[in-house]
Design a protein around this nucleic acid. Sequence first.
DNA 1: TCTGGGGTCCTAGGACCC
DNA 2: TCTGGGGTCCTAGGACCC
Length: 425
Amino acid sequence: MKNLFALVDCNNFYVSCERVFNPRLEGRAVVVLSNNDGCVIARSNEAKALGIKMGAPAFQHKDLFRKNGVLVYSSNYALYGDMSQRVMETLGRFTPRIEIYSIDEAFLSLEGFDSTSLTEYAHLIRSTAKKWTGIPVSIGIGPTKTLAKLASKVAKKYRKLNGVFDLTDHPAMEKILDSVDVGDVWGIGPRYRTFLVRHGIRSALDLNRAGDIWVKKHMTVMGLRTVKELRGIPCFGLEELPVPRKGIMSSRSFGRPVESLEELKQALATYVSRAAEKLRSQRSAAAIVHVFLLTNRFKPREPQYGNSSTAILPIPMDYTPNLIRWAHRQLGKIYKPGYRYKKTGVFLTEIVPRDRIQLNLFTQNYPHEKNRKIMRVVDLINARWGTDTVRYGAEGTQKEWKMRRNLLSPRYTTQWSEIPVVKSE
DNA sequence: TCTGGGGTCCTAGGACCC
DNA sequence: TCTGGGGTCCTAGGACCC
């Protein structure tokens, strides 16, 4: 049967989430900032029209924001995660096969659906999502994921399409591909864009017509797959099952520079407990702990230092206190006094399923049943009452290094009102 | 004062083995 | 005349995604 994909993309997702609970934001220029209130990571159409770029540092635009009455919010991931789940559940009603691709995008398989009424169906999906969740979405349809993505860009670009565009067997395919900048093709980032333009490849159509061997030579097999997908030959399938992470990272920039080892250890302990939580939630254990720390690269006049250190654990672990001990040990090896640090973090790798840990002679009863029970209770309580309800002494209580979130909206959906159901094992 | 955080995949090249 | 060569594993680095 013929492949057929729909890409559903939430419009200006974080801004749309804020708008659902604060209708005053409708029709206004609104931006949402990254952690630490650093960069712009979501913009309403009105904000885009003011020329505010994705990733723009917020402090450079203070004047512009004030002059134009731009409403500025800290990112509220508890809210966005919850809204995302509602949108995905809604989309799941319209197809038996769905891939949740990111917090604000999903691929739907439309294989076997009546191809003459797909646009109509997509309009129904779109209006239902809006009605049930308040979030506006755009939908692109195509025979490959790359073309569905491209179609969704077209759907956003032309108002009269009402947020839906089907590129499948389109009579004006070439003209449409020619109207799309090569850098807007899924898989073509800024580096490749520069390179391609230098070689006269400016549009998606140019790329579609590029030679296979040349593409493979300069852009690896991944680039070649992208080109084939542009020609309608599917190279990327629907990934319905979440793939267990191969590495789990947790790190944050500090709200202010941190110099003491004591405070770095507190911050690192906090990140290790987040990472360990994620590890346990996918029922895994990690055998390698990488720790890194960095000064602020945007302050060239301050002395710069960055380093990392890796511990190979005697056996894969998921017990937070032990992981904190190992992380602290590595931090001690790379910490140098006299620097103003901006960031530290942990990266867990060599991840294996928890119940398939290779035991050795010295670890007969591993993992210890008591530790496992403690972790289960801690995870349950934190899932129910919010991260940080139970935490470790090593994380500290003052947390003066915590990131800034001065412009946070209330936790509309996740505070008190909802108690997640936790499945027993 | 002030510039995010988390992932994926691929390739080249070195080490090592036979 | 003319410094073996092929396979495998690992790591660092570079590209991409949202």
